[in-house]
Write a protein that binds this DNA or RNA. Sequence first.
DNA 1: AAATATATGTTGCATTTACAACAATATTAT
DNA 2: ATAATATTGTTGTAAATGCAACATATATTT
Lengths: 156, 156
Amino acid sequence: MDKDTKLEHYTDSIHYELEQTSRLMKMLGKQLFEKLEIGITMDEYAALDTISINAGICQRDLAKLIIKDRANTGRILEVLESKGFITRFIDTKNNRLVKKMGITEKGYKELNFINKKIKHYFENVTNKIPKETWTKVQSVLKAFRIELEQMIDTNI
Amino acid sequence: MDKDTKLEHYTDSIHYELEQTSRLMKMLGKQLFEKLEIGITMDEYAALDTISINAGICQRDLAKLIIKDRANTGRILEVLESKGFITRFIDTKNNRLVKKMGITEKGYKELNFINKKIKHYFENVTNKIPKETWTKVQSVLKAFRIELEQMIDTNI
DNA sequence: AAATATATGTTGCATTTACAACAATATTAT
DNA sequence: ATAATATTGTTGTAAATGCAACATATATTT
């Protein structure tokens, strides 16, 4: 028997399982943010959180971290800036002019406010699986993601 | 020390890791499908695969499986039908008129053709992590996904 | 029987996202 | 020095997606 003739269904693949789970998580997040009347989107929240732990990061580097293209990263930042949650300023990186940014006091308060609001809800969800199991899954995914990043032309 | 005061960053959460990994996988898939000049999208392929193992499924049930809304599921099916990969026919389910579908001979050939084309490439990617590790991750995600599906109003 | 509710699929529109082209500047090559 | 290339961010447009409204038919309730 040639085992290569046994084709696995895509719908049984890890790729598919990841996408489906991620899609549901995104739905849950969106519904939660609306229900709790949080004034920014999940993506904006993720960007704000990333900025909070990467003070002085430039737009393109942020884009790489949140895996969005430069155009949309810029648009997200416009929103966050217009709400006063971040400041943007021109600076240099490798002798090039770039737009760096940092979280404001207001943004920091907002971030903590959101964290407190959603903590309980998200825990209720992730508590369905033991924490140590998550830790393992997370480390596998992280290792895998690093591999992926090396293979893919993210074009950011 | 109140451990509740220690707030985990969203970007360290399993939610975030899942989304980022899934996003990269999607990019990879898209780039691969274009490089190999496969004439349908990943989403259409996923739908075709799902139909192939769920003969006679109706649109809404398919939408639930591929986690897309009814509108977009219908659009995907239009494409697959126009290419002759599936047939759609009116039937009843619980005494209601529904559009059921099945894969055609041509669609089945196309599915196998695509599977053969991508197999090697996808294996090269997933081989970065041992197979038994994937099996564990997959079973965790599947269990989690079932929980999620019960909590979320997918509105499909 | 009539009214109300539910299930299914489609259509239209708004939002989101992806992608390519551009502008401005700096680096490297010729 | 000049030209070609690379980096960064923005703008415009097309494609994908989500969502609400609709149409149709059936179930359920009154």
